[in-house]
Design a protein around this nucleic acid. Structure first.
Length: 486
RNA sequence: GGCCCCAUCGUCUAGUGGUUAGGACGUCAGGUUUUCAUCCUGGUAACGGGAGUUCGAUUCUCCCUGGGGCUACCA
């Protein structure tokens, strides 16, 4: 199966676009086919320099690599494949050729109407509560008149002549049978006066020439489908299969947009989301495997994805579950890899972390408690700087740690910990002596463990006292307890 | 306004004529012999409305309502 993703280089990759690309990629990979990337830059005004690189880079981040078409080669935009060029602005003569064919066989006609007239016409139609549609004024131009205008170089566009009496039916892979009446479809512009094709012509020509089997695109294209179908018919092409995926929505159920949250994939990358988490999340927004499974790697998605299980209705882009998935994926990372990944982040603030031989054992303590890598430095602060311990932190009502008892507890901790052999300085060994201490003194475990943990970390929340003391070692542990003066 | 699409917990969803309407996220409660996080257990919470078909509708049909998309020489 050959599928494609065809973004316009007008800015960053929208998360909805990423999802569409993902679905197309999964279908191609699943069938051992090709995933093609094409750039649709037929709107010169909206094209943004560098946007193609950004989109490609983001796709790469997500683990989606095109097999054919436009791709990144050592950071530079290049392309590969026998059906190129894959950038529409480089295919102008191809579109012109097919446009001429349509014109010659009468499926399209030239329109010389000015945008002013068109605007006025639509306004009038609106007033009359009619559907704004081209009134076919230029259809009644005689061949002679058209010829004269063309020779005079009058700017004009090419419009598709929709057979008004035709009933267009089609089967969408997601939506099932669809029917449109010809008279409700406007005579779409195919070629603009600047010589560029519109999306409609370019889509049909390219997807045919590039042998695309199934077009996966957003639902916003559904109402343009009859135009495309007609175009395939008039051009004598076999139409591809179509799958119009539901839209991603804002919390108020409108089409997902800026203003109401982050829609650029880069925002999520910058926030620190793992590609695995975002891909997993996006895959599940509008698709499900039909069982209870929720965690999917790209490979598993390729294996399990099923176009028949794509949802028909739009899905609100609610990132609560994304955060949960992020946590799931963070915890799946091996402790070694986790340490390697957060080391540069921690090193930025605590230089000594870079060459710390115990870094991994420290990192392990926070792996289960963070959601984003950039939280690491703060969470590991007490390993690299002396904690600032306040009396308020040490005293804890819930743990029944009172100001009065604190000196006794700290003294007892010092005496007890001093007596621990180096070989017993580990979690189990410490547990044994400290629980015994509590029992001996008639204290609750929390009454000695809370002050100990707070003393060592200076934080209200942190890894546990035993873990921290073990990693810190006897010397530093005792030093920190002794430093407390109440 | 016109055309098209859609409709199950707050959110993502399972369900295809007979179910105590299931799961996940969130949230709430409890537990994991110290905190937070993790993890575990439990609770909370939904078929938009009306006809019809049927012995029986969340499920099929129609209407309504609601929501959305499109309605450019943008994609």
């Amino acid at each position: 199966m050959r599928t494609r993703f065809a973004p316009s280089p007008t800015g960053f990759l929208h998360v909805g676009g990423l999802r569409t690309a993902l679905y197309a990629y999964l279908i191609a990979k699943q069938s051992k086919g090709e995933f093609i990337l094409r750039i649709e830059d037929t709107d010169q005004e909206r094209s943004v320099l560098g946007a193609t690189e950004d989109i490609l880079r983001t796709l790469h981040w997500a683990g989606i690599a095109p097999d054919e078409g436009v791709m990144l080669d050592q950071g530079k935009v290049s392309s590969k494949g026998a059906k190129g060029p894959y950038i529409q602005s480089q295919r102008l003569e191809v579109y012109q050729q097919y446009a001429k064919k349509l014109l010659d066989k009468g499926s399209a006609y030239r329109c010389f109407c000015s945008s002013e007239r068109l605007g006025q016409m639509r306004e009038d139609q609106q007033k009359r509560k009619e559907a704004p549609m081209y009134d076919r004024l230029c259809c009644s131009l005689s061949e002679e008149e058209v010829k004269k205008k063309v020779e005079a170089d009058e700017p004009h566009v090419l419009r598709l002549k929709i057979p008004r009496s035709e009933k267009i039916t089609f089967n969408d892979d997601i939506r099932g049978d669809l029917t449109f009446m010809g008279h409700t479809v406007d005579d779409q512009v195919l070629m603009k006066s600047d010589g560029f094709p519109t999306y409609h012509l370019a889509h049909v020509v390219d997807d045919h020439l590039m042998d695309i089997d199934i077009v996966i695109r957003g639902e916003e294209w559904l109402s343009s489908l009859p135009k495309h179908l007609l175009l395939f018919q008039e051009l004598g092409f076999k139409p591809p299969r179509y799958a119009h995926v539901p839209l991603l929505l804002n919390a108020d159920k409108t089409k997902l947009s800026k203003r109401q949250g982050d829609v650029a994939t880069e925002e999520y990358i910058n926030k620190g989301y793992l590609p695995e988490a975002l891909v997993n999340f996006l895959a599940l927004l509008g698709w499900n495997p039909g069982n209870k499974d929720e965690i999917f790697s790209m490979e598993e998605l390729i294996d399990k994805f099923d176009i028949g299980r794509i949802q028909k209705s739009g899905a609100i882009f609610d990132t609560e579950k994304l955060d949960w998935l992020q946590g799931q994926w963070i915890r799946k990372i091996s402790s070694q890899e986790f340490a390697e990944r957060i080391n540069p982040i921690v090193t930025e603030i605590y230089k000594e972390a870079e060459s710390d031989p115990d870094f991994e054992s420290k990192a392990v303590l926070i792996q289960d408690r963070l959601t984003f890598f950039n939280e690491a430095a703060e969470m590991m602060s007490f390993f690299y700087e002396e904690p600032k311990v306040t009396k308020e932190l040490l005293i804890n009502d819930k743990q029944k740690v009172s100001e009065e008892m604190l000196p006794n507890v700290l003294d007892a901790l010092i005496t007890t910990l001093e007596s621990v052999d180096d070989k017993d300085w580990n979690e189990d060994g410490l547990k044994e002596v400290l629980f015994a201490l509590a029992k001996d003194k008639g204290w609750k475990n929390g009454q000695i463990l809370w002050p100990l943990r707070a003393t060592l970390t200076g934080l209200p929340y942190s890894p546990g006292a035993f873990e921290v003391a073990t990693v810190l070692g006897k010397e530093i542990t005792l030093k920190r307890i002794r430093a407390i003066s109440i």
